Amino acid sequence: MTSDTLELQDVEKRRQADQAYDAIETLIATLQLRPGAPVVESELIARIGLGRTPTREALMRLVASGLIAQQPRRGLLVSDIPLAEHLDLLEARRPLERLIACCSARRASPAQRSALLACAARMAEAAERHDLEAYMRVDQALDRVNHAACRNRYAVAAVLPMIIQCRRFWYAYRHLGDVASGARAHQRLAETIASGDGVAAAEASDALMAHLRNFTLQVIA
């Protein structure tokens, strides 16, 4: 077996692991797997249609991110939504998002800038239709482009678990949310990154975090 063949196999394994991760994350974020529910590997494999190895790797990453808890004698459980700690999470997330936005404004390729604007436009359309599932999918897509564009894997690795927790928190209390306002905040972020203005991108990132903080205060009031 040649080195090129081995490399292609490794790429395919990573791709399947990423697919498994995204599929399980979506099940958790949209409460199809509810807090406290047991995580049964065989059931997940059947549900997402991927093999044991990528599913197991995805579960390990989800344990590391805090979405799944590993408990003695109880196995894997979907973690609770930490309502009391959510403001602390947003406080920690804010400087990371600011850094990522600044880096993306400087480093994004023309194709990535166009992709960010397209994602933001689709978010606005989904918000107008009140299509929350589509809104969340495009939100996730926008994050992926932004993270690739920033070219700072350490910042991305640090912020990802927080984003996932925020996505689940938003979905759990979505009846209190204003998706139109959220779409506008994302659109402003995409526009400033696409323009290459790092200062404006940082301010837009802060505005998005303020929007999420106001939503959290409304939930816990």
Rank of each mutant, 00 (worst) to 15 (best):
T30P: 12
Y21S: 05
L33Q: 01
G49K: 14
M60C: 07
T30M: 14
L50M: 08
R34H: 06
P82E: 09
G36D: 02
I81F: 07
S65D: 13
P35V: 02
V78T: 04
A46F: 05
I28G: 04
E43C: 08
T30S: 15
V78A: 02
L44W: 00
A46N: 12
T55D: 01
S79P: 06
L31N: 12
V63F: 05
D80W: 00
Q71R: 14
V78E: 00
V39G: 01
S65G: 08
G66D: 06
E43H: 15
L59N: 01
V40Y: 00
G36N: 02
G51H: 09
A23D: 09
S42V: 10
R73L: 11
L62M: 11
I48W: 03
A64G: 08
A37P: 01
L31F: 10
V78I: 08
R61F: 03
S79R: 13
I24Y: 03
V40R: 15
A69S: 14
A64E: 15
P82G: 06
T55Y: 00
P82C: 09
D22G: 05
T53A: 14
Q70T: 09
A69Q: 06
L67D: 04
E25P: 10
D22L: 10
E57D: 15
G36Q: 02
I68W: 03
L44C: 04
D80C: 00
L44M: 02
L77P: 04
S42L: 07
L76W: 13
V63C: 09
L83W: 07
V40T: 10
Q70Y: 10
E41V: 10
I28H: 00
T53G: 12
L76S: 12
G51Y: 08
G51C: 13
L67N: 11
L83S: 05
P82L: 09
G51M: 10
P38C: 08
L59H: 08
I45D: 01
L83N: 08
I45F: 05
S79H: 11
A20W: 00
V40E: 13
P72I: 06
L77Q: 14
L83M: 12
S42W: 05
S65E: 04
V63M: 12
G49V: 11
E57A: 13
G66K: 07
E41K: 15
A46Q: 12
G36P: 05
S42K: 13
P72Q: 08
G75C: 13
A37Q: 09
P82V: 03
T53N: 11
G51Q: 12
G51K: 13
R52Q: 15
L44A: 01
E43W: 11
E41M: 10
A29H: 14
A58T: 02
E41F: 04
A37D: 02
E25C: 15
R74K: 11
E57K: 12
L77T: 06
V39A: 01
G75H: 11
Q70D: 15
L76A: 11
R73Y: 08
L62K: 06
Q71E: 14
P35K: 02
I48C: 00
A20S: 03
R73Q: 14
A37Y: 01
G75K: 11
I45H: 04
A46W: 05
Q71K: 10
Q70W: 12
A69G: 07
G36F: 01
T55H: 00
R56C: 02
L44D: 00
E43I: 07
V40L: 13
T26W: 15
S65I: 03
S42R: 14
A58R: 04
